[in-house]
Design a binder for these strands. Structure first.
Lengths: 194, 194
DNA sequence: CGATCTTGGTTCAAGTTTGAAACAAACCTA
DNA sequence: TAGGTTTGTTTCAAACTTGAACCAAGATCG
């Protein structure tokens, strides 16, 4: 096959996108590192945990939500545990499993640093966009995510993959993690979630 | 100040975006790692070098184009140099400077792996988007990048910052690196540049 | 000129990420 | 129910990233 190169428009979009996300991630990482001593991912872990009813999630579920490897998560949680922000518990229903639980301290810390984080996201991204663009951004990346969703399993496309929806009793009752209605003080976590 | 949390729309956009870029970067990194034994950034370095008239660029210029730190670039170039894909030369006009030069081997390798890379970018991103969305994506991230541009220097906004445009004779004649008209075989690099 | 400031790059230690390998519990099947 | 496969998670070594500290070469200014 003779390679379908990117069109000029695609090239421009790609360049802008790559530059943009590097700058954005950099800014976010730096901000969190300075004010909280942790990188973006670690914040996301705390945030995701805080959104579940019982502030607990199985490692695999967490990894899946965050779109990272189990290995990476193990390392990250180990660090957060050492800092006392997260606790590990074994899953009673599945002896193989481990659930990560947000500690009270972890929750407190999260509430402290959330505002700064949100502010950074806002300054770097949302304050630059019109409401329409926010919608476009969501639409675009939702499609991208869905694209990968379908990939993994036998070219299934946008199927439901019911057997994958193993809402193990260990994780908070959060199903496939729908919309986190949180918005108040606790919403802090939601606000910057993923 | 009472923190302006993200609106539900912004939250959704943010979540989709974060999940999307993680998946995308992951796919790209994995593909390049497998087929070329190098991460995305390293590919970008080769690509950027290949776009300049003489396939050479000063370290600082390169770092700036790629939106990464000098430190990170030093490490990356060291590795690429060890692999023989890039060569370091000292800048004649400024004894402090170092220029990274794409070797013939580096260029050859780049042409070999470019198709696969472009294909991955296409499969993960562009094939999912309508032409309008490609335009939107460019617009959105261009604004994001510009936002950061202005930041660094005294709230200058979209100024020209003439003194920064130090197109040192060492780097290829590429100014602030405009549009890389490349599109043919060599365009490979351009196609996936940044 | 000489002290000082800025700029271009590298180095170093500490922290993070990766992918493959190792384990162990759960599941399936004959 | 033994044996084999799958699933959940950790471990390990190698590679990468980070930020601060450092060195040397321009640029400034009295």
């Amino acid at each position: 096959m003779t390679t379908r190169w990117l069109t000029p428009e695609e090239q421009r979009a790609w360049r802008a996108y790559v530059a943009g996300y590097l700058l954005l991630e950099d800014a976010i990482d730096r901000q969190l590192q300075q004010e909280a001593g942790m990188p973006h991912l670690y914040y996301s872990i705390l945030a995701n945990l805080s959104e579940t009813p019982e502030r607990r999630l199985r490692m695999t579920d967490l990894a899946e939500q965050l779109k990272i490897t189990r290995s990476r998560l193990t390392y990250a949680v180990a660090r957060l545990e050492k800092d006392g922000l997260v606790r590990r518990e074994e899953c009673r229903w599945d002896k193989r499993g481990t659930v990560a639980v947000l500690t009270d301290e972890g929750h407190a810390i999260l509430e402290n640093i959330a505002p700064g984080h949100v502010e950074t996201v806002r300054a770097g991204l949302f304050d630059r966009l019109t409401p329409e663009q926010v919608g476009q951004l969501e639409q675009i990346f939702t499609q991208v995510v869905q694209g990968f969703q379908g990939d993994g399993d036998g070219e299934a496309g946008p199927e439901e993959l019911p057997w994958r929806r193993r809402s193990s009793p260990c994780s908070g009752t959060s199903g496939t993690s729908g919309a986190p209605e949180t918005t108040g003080t606790t919403g802090t976590s939601g606000a910057s979630g993923a």
